[in-house]
Amino acid sequence: MPHFNSTAISRAEYNPKTRVLSLWFADVGGPCDYYRVPLFVYEGLCRAGSKRDYFKTYIHDQYATR
């Protein structure tokens, strides 16, 4: 599970079998789970220069969460 040097997201975990993306936010902790997330979205987050911008554009309000 990668740890990020980001002011927004500190850590991410992805389960390819269930397609659940778990995120730990720097300000509130976690995990916060996002469901039915394709692998390429997780990979994009890992590569993104700005985790916050990527999250806002490609994950937030795009996938069911709890």
Rank of each mutant, 00 (worst) to 15 (best):
D33C: 15
C46K: 10
P31C: 10
Y54P: 03
M1D: 09
D27H: 14
T57E: 10
Y63A: 12
T7C: 02
V37Q: 13
S22G: 09
Y42K: 07
T7M: 01
F40E: 15
I59K: 03
F4T: 02
E43K: 13
K51L: 09
S10V: 00
G44K: 02
Y54E: 03
A12V: 01
P2S: 05
Y63F: 15
Y54Q: 04
G49N: 10
R47D: 11
S50R: 01
Y35N: 08
D27R: 14
N15M: 09
R19F: 02
R36V: 00
S6E: 01
K51M: 08
L23N: 05
L45M: 10
G44D: 03
Y42M: 11
D27T: 14
T65V: 07
L45Y: 01
Y63R: 08
K17T: 12
D53A: 15
R19E: 15
S10H: 00
N15F: 08
G29H: 08
R11M: 13
D27V: 05
I59D: 00
Y14I: 06
F25Y: 14
E43T: 07
C46M: 07
T7D: 11
P2D: 03
N15S: 15
I9R: 01
Y34K: 09
A12G: 09
P2Q: 04
G29A: 08
A26L: 03
S22W: 04
P2V: 08
T18E: 12
T18Y: 02
V37A: 13
K56P: 00
A8S: 14
V28F: 14
R47A: 15
Y35P: 02
V37F: 11
L23V: 03
N5H: 05
E13F: 07
Y14C: 07
V37G: 10
N5M: 05
G30Y: 06
C46T: 09
H3R: 11
Y54T: 03
T57R: 13
D53W: 00
D33N: 15
Y58R: 08
A12P: 01
R19Q: 15
T18R: 13
F25I: 09
H60T: 01
V41P: 04
R66T: 08
H3E: 12
F4H: 09
L39N: 08
N15V: 10
A26D: 05
R19A: 13
M1A: 13
S50N: 06
K17H: 13
R19C: 14
V37P: 11
L21D: 04
E43W: 00
A48C: 04
G30P: 07
S22N: 12
R11A: 14
A26K: 14
Y34M: 07
F40S: 13
Y54M: 05
F25V: 09
K51Y: 05
G49Y: 03
Y58G: 00
S6F: 00
F55Y: 15
I9H: 01
K17C: 06
P31Y: 11
H60M: 13
Y58D: 03
I9S: 04
S50Y: 01
S10C: 03
G29T: 06
